[in-house]
């Protein structure tokens, strides 16, 4: 873990306990998840008990305590998406990636998550891949989309 990065983040943010969330957001953005040693460091730096930092990290859906894959697939299961067939989208992703919601594929390529609403109900069913919203999804479109992302991922992995 590059501790120098952590130091920079801690320096750039305030030192009051209410600044912890901003630091956690930065760390989440940098690493894709919140590793244990970083939370320990944050707790030392702010001089708050570790449970306080852990409590925050476990409370918000935006934070992950487990390593995430290189690509994040989020399926909206809100009411509007649900009636427009979101469960079928989820089944499709589960079948394609062979992971349950909240899990990461073995090759660390994909993490599957569900969300309760994205506030874009007119576009439902929605699947978000790496921050990009894909509305009016169908199992077929989703399969093609996942295939394209996987091909891109394998090209990048191969080139490294």
């Amino acid at each position: 873990m590059e501790l120098s990065n952590v130091d920079t983040i801690l320096e750039n943010r305030g030192a009051e306990p209410f600044d912890i969330i901003e630091v956690l957001q930065d760390l989440q953005g940098l690493h894709g998840y919140l590793p244990e040693e970083l939370l320990c460091r944050v707790s030392e730096s702010f001089a708050v008990p570790l449970i306080e930092v852990f409590r925050l990290a476990s409370f918000y859906r935006a934070f992950s305590l487990k390593p995430r894959g290189r690509h994040l697939v989020t399926v909206c299961l809100g009411t509007a998406c649900h009636v427009r067939g979101a469960p079928r989208m989820l089944d499709e992703v589960v079948a394609q990636l062979d992971v349950e919601p909240g899990e990461t594929t073995e090759d660390r390529a994909f993490t599957l998550e569900t969300v309760n609403c994205l506030g874009a109900c007119a576009l439902g069913p929605i699947v978000v891949i790496d921050g990009e919203y894909h509305g009016d999804m169908s199992p077929g479109k989703l399969r093609a989309l996942l295939g394209a992302v996987r091909d891109g991922d394998q090209a990048v992995v191969a080139s490294v």
Binding site: L39, P49, E52, S58
Partner: peptide
């Protein structure tokens, strides 16, 4: 004055736990 354990998670998942 110890704060060793606390509430973790939220909603139906909320439970008492030690950090990690």
């Amino acid at each position: 004055q110890s704060k060793s354990l606390g509430f973790v998670g939220r909603g139906g998942d909320r439970h008492v736990a030690l950090p990690f």
